[in-house]
């Protein structure tokens, strides 16, 4: 039998890898990919706990996370395409329009 903490540990490590990529990579596409990693870590947590608690709510929530992740990917990538079209770059540290 695998303790639930193993799954949680794996999810924690995966989440932190996602955070790491999100915070350090310059390429916006890879940053979004890192977000996918974090979402997967969350999904893993949900499914594992759902399994061990014998409650399907967690898995249902995973569905919604996947749906939102898909939507986020679609929108996010569309924004990247627009930004690239305007600025000819997808490097996050070269886009400083937020400063206003």
């Amino acid at each position: 039998m695998i303790p639930v903490n193993w799954y949680l540990t794996l999810a924690a490590v995966l989440f932190c890898i996602g955070v790491y990529g999100f915070l350090t990579r310059r390429n916006v596409v890879i940053m979004l990919l890192s977000v996918e990693l974090m979402l997967n870590a969350v999904n893993l947590n949900l499914v594992a706990i759902s399994h061990y608690m014998q409650d399907l709510s967690g898995q249902i929530l995973t569905f919604f996370v996947i749906a939102v992740a898909a939507a986020e990917a679609a929108i996010g990538l569309a924004i990247i395409v627009t930004v690239f079209r305007n600025r000819r770059t997808v490097l996050g540290d070269q886009i400083t329009e937020l400063r206003g």
Partner: peptide, 13 residues
């Protein structure tokens, strides 16, 4: 957090 995690009461499924 992961190592201090304790499961709650089990559900119906």
């Amino acid at each position: 957090a992961a190592w201090s995690f304790k499961l709650g009461p089990a559900g119906t499924w």
